[in-house]
């Protein structure tokens, strides 16, 4: 086990998250996965959007980028394409990623660009104090769903798979060893990896829905999930309303920036006799 704290900007700790917030646990899981792989701190860029979860990057001792709400994946795409040799990680929340950031999530997955996305899903907007999010289950309460949420949420992992992500997994802040294993494998996948971490927000999700404090919420998360391997042997009625955790999809395909580098090599070979120089550029406007 490596020295976890050596991955943090310790002068920034203790962090701002509420007592018992699952974002701290998920952040710790990412750091421990990075540690297992002995990644070079100078070659890791962590990008986040806006929200409680996105404050994580400020505490981590890497090149870190705290961007605009929902745009982390678009910023990260720019970094990864500009410097494919960097390990680019995105830390985002359920609102940041699936609401305002949904479009960039779908297209980053479609491109299969080499970015590992950790979606810290606490089923609510925490930073703005308790509004429901696209991942809030139907019927649950939030400050903007005072009579119960009438909207349905979608299965982020199924969305990621169908959009083209080549590694998709889900774990929780209860099943931390599993979460670390899955993040480690996600980081090893050259293409677009998604790890959804179901985490507890005791301050709003727990309170607004009378689930309880951090401990009760972790038990609630534990009760509501079942490992995909175990689920295979369970009768359907046992799986009703259960959320599958574990590795859900893993099939390596051509990674976007590698394919683009191959394109550059191909083009430059074809144009090695490129005497046109700057002004010999093709003008394709006619």
């Amino acid at each position: 086990m490596g020295d976890t704290l050596s991955y943090f900007r310790q002068d920034m700790l203790p962090h701002i998250w509420c007592p018992g917030c699952g974002h701290g646990t998920a952040t710790g899981a990412l750091v421990r996965a990075i540690d297992r792989l002995h990644l070079d701190k100078n070659k890791v860029c962590i990008v986040s959007g806006i929200g409680c979860s996105s404050r994580a990057v400020g505490y981590l001792d890497f090149d870190t980028l705290h961007t605009a709400h929902g745009r982390a994946l678009a910023f990260a795409t720019g970094i990864k394409l500009a410097r494919p040799e960097l390990k680019v990680i995105v830390m985002t929340g359920d609102g940041d990623c699936t609401a305002i950031g949904g479009n960039h999530f779908i297209h980053a997955a479609r491109r299969n660009i080499g970015i590992t996305t950790i979606v810290m899903n606490n089923n609510i907007y925490g930073m703005t104090s308790g509004q429901y999010s696209p991942m809030t289950p139907k019927g649950f309460f939030g400050t903007t769903a005072p009579y119960g949420n009438v909207e349905r949420n979608f299965d982020l992992c199924e969305l990621a798979k169908s959009a083209g992500a080549t590694y998709v997994a889900r774990a929780t802040s209860y099943h931390v060893p599993l979460l670390i294993d899955l993040i480690e494998k996600a980081l090893l996948n050259p293409g677009f990896s998604v790890v959804e971490a179901l985490v507890q927000c005791p301050t709003y999700m727990g309170r607004k829905n009378k689930i309880g404090g951090p401990v009760e919420m972790l038990n609630w998360i534990k009760e509501g999930t079942v490992n995909v391997k175990a689920a295979a042997a369970l009768p359907p009625e046992k799986l009703k309303d259960k959320i599958l955790i574990g590795e859900l999809y893993n099939k390596q395909e051509g990674e976007y920036t590698a394919d683009y580098d191959a394109l550059i090599a191909r083009v430059q070979r074809k144009y090695d006799k490129f005497q046109g120089g700057l002004y010999g550029c093709a003008s394709n406007s006619d």
């Binding site: 976890t4 704290l5 646990t25 421990r32």
Partner: peptide, 9 residues
């Protein structure tokens, strides 16, 4: 592993 604040090792 579960501590959200890295307060125990």
């Amino acid at each position: 592993l579960r501590c959200p604040d890295f307060a125990i090792e």
